[in-house]
Computed example of a mutant assay.
Amino acid sequence: MSKPALPIFDGHNDTLLRLEMARRNGAPISFVDGHPSLQIDLPKATKGHFAGGLFAMFVPPILNDAEKNDPVARQKAIEASDAVDWTLGMIAEACRLERASNGRVRICRSSADIKQAMADEALALMLHIEGAEAIGADFNALEAFYAAGLRSLGPVWSRDNIFGAGVPFDFPGSPDHGPGLSDLGKELVRRCNQLGVMIDLSHLNEKGFWDVQKLSDKPLVASHSNVHKLSQSRRNLTDKQLDAIAESKGLVGLNYAVGFLRSDGEKFKRDVSLDLMVDHLAYLVEKLGEDGVGLGSDYDGATVPDVVADVSLNQKLIDHMRHRGFGETLVEKIAFKNWLGLLERTGI
C-alpha cells in the first residue's frame, strides 16, 4: 500500500522575485491562478502538498547590456536605494497575493502562525531577505521589515556588501574565501538575535560563518546548501561547518540546484537522479542527526533536476526517501517537522 502524501515546508525559494520581475517588465503573472513560468504557484503547490516556506526577497544584479552575460558583473555591489526599492516591491507582491488568495495564502510571522495555516490548509508564507543590502548601516529598515513580517535574513548573497563577504559560484572551490563579517555585520547578527530574526548562513563565506557561530545564541541555519564532500562547490558546507551546525541544534535545507548536487559541478545539466539528492540528505542526516535536516529547494531561483522540475513533483523525493529506507518518522521530519522545530528553537 502506498504511503500518503506529506505536507512540505521548504526553506528557500525565489518566487516573489519572479513575480516582481514580471510586474516590472509590464507582464504581471498570477501566483494564485498559476503560471507556466513559475516553479511554485498555488495550483502546483496544492498538487504537490506544498504547505509553505521561507519566501526570499533577493535583489537581482543591476546590469547594463554589456554586463548581462558576465558572471563577474553579477556579483558587483548593489546600491542601497535599489535594494530598498526591490525589497519593498517583493513585500508588496506578498501582500497582493495574500489578498488575492481569499485566505488560501497567509503571511506568517511565527511558527504558531505556520501551524495554524497548515491546519487550515492555507499556504504559509514567511518572509526572508537574501542579501541584506536593503537594511542599511542605521538598521532602521530592519525594524520596518520586521514589522512587515520579516523573520529570516541572510547577511549576504554571493557578493560582498557592508555586512560581509559572500562566496562566488566557483567549482571546485572552498567556502574559505574572503574576510569575515564587518563590524556592521556583527551588529546585524546581534540585532537579529534580539528581534527574533533567523540568520541564514547560505551564501556566507567560511570566515563569516565562524563569526556568526561565535556571536549568535541561536541555532545555526543554512536554508539551502549541500554537502561539500559530495559536490565541491564553494556554496556547499564542509564537515567542520556541519559539525558546528549539529552542535548548535541547527538545520541545513537540501538545495535542489543541480550545480550544488552534482560531483562534476555542472550547473545546467538537469539529469540529476533522486538517488543523488537522497545521497546528500543521507550524509546530512549522518552529520546533523534526524532533527537537523530539511528541504531548501531554491525553486524559481535555480536550475533544478527534471525529476522535481516544480513543486508539484516534490512527493517523488518524499517517496524516494522511503524507497531508500528512511523511516516514516524521519521522512516527516525532513518534509516539514524539522523546519517548524527549528523556527521554535530560534524563538520565532
Rank of each mutant, 00 (worst) to 15 (best):
A132E: 11
A132G: 13
E133D: 15
E133I: 03
A134D: 05
I135L: 06
I135S: 12
G136R: 05
G136P: 01
G136S: 11
A137E: 15
F139H: 10
N140I: 04
A141N: 15
L142H: 10
E143G: 14
E143W: 04
A144K: 13
Y146Q: 01
A147Q: 14
A148F: 14
A148G: 00
G149M: 08
G149W: 10
L150K: 08
L150H: 12
R151M: 07
R151W: 10
R151V: 08
R151P: 09
R151D: 07
S152L: 05
L153N: 12
G154E: 02
G154V: 02
P155Y: 09
P155R: 10
S158C: 10
R159P: 02
R159L: 13
N161W: 13
N161G: 13
I162D: 13
I162F: 05
F163N: 12
F163D: 07
F163G: 04
A165R: 13
V167L: 05
P168V: 04
F169W: 03
F171I: 00
P172W: 11
P172Y: 07
G173Y: 12
S174A: 07
P175C: 12
D176R: 10
H177D: 14
G178T: 10
G178Y: 02
S182W: 12
S182Q: 09
S182F: 11
S182C: 08
L184M: 11
G185I: 10
G185L: 03
G185A: 09
E187P: 04
V189T: 05
V189S: 08
V189F: 13
R190G: 06
R190N: 12
C192F: 08
C192T: 09
C192V: 10
N193F: 06
Q194Y: 00
Q194L: 09
L195Q: 14
G196P: 14
G196D: 12
V197S: 08
V197G: 09
M198D: 03
I199A: 11
D200V: 01
D200G: 07
D200F: 03
L201G: 03
L201N: 05
S202G: 01
H203V: 01
N205G: 05
N205S: 11
N205F: 07
N205R: 03
E206S: 04
E206G: 00
E206D: 13
E206V: 00
E206W: 02
K207L: 11
G208F: 08
F209Q: 00
W210M: 05
W210R: 02
D211W: 08
V212F: 11
Q213A: 15
L215A: 14
S216N: 13
D217I: 04
D217N: 15
D217G: 15
D217V: 05
P219N: 13
P219I: 04
V221C: 06
S223V: 04
S223C: 08
N226R: 02
V227Y: 02
V227I: 06
H228K: 04
H228Y: 13
H228G: 01
H228T: 02
K229Y: 06
L230C: 03
L230T: 08
S231Q: 00
Q232V: 00
Q232H: 15
S233D: 02
S233H: 15
S233A: 15
R234N: 03
R234F: 02
R234D: 04
R235L: 00
R235T: 00
T238M: 04
T238K: 05
D239W: 00
D239F: 01
K240L: 09
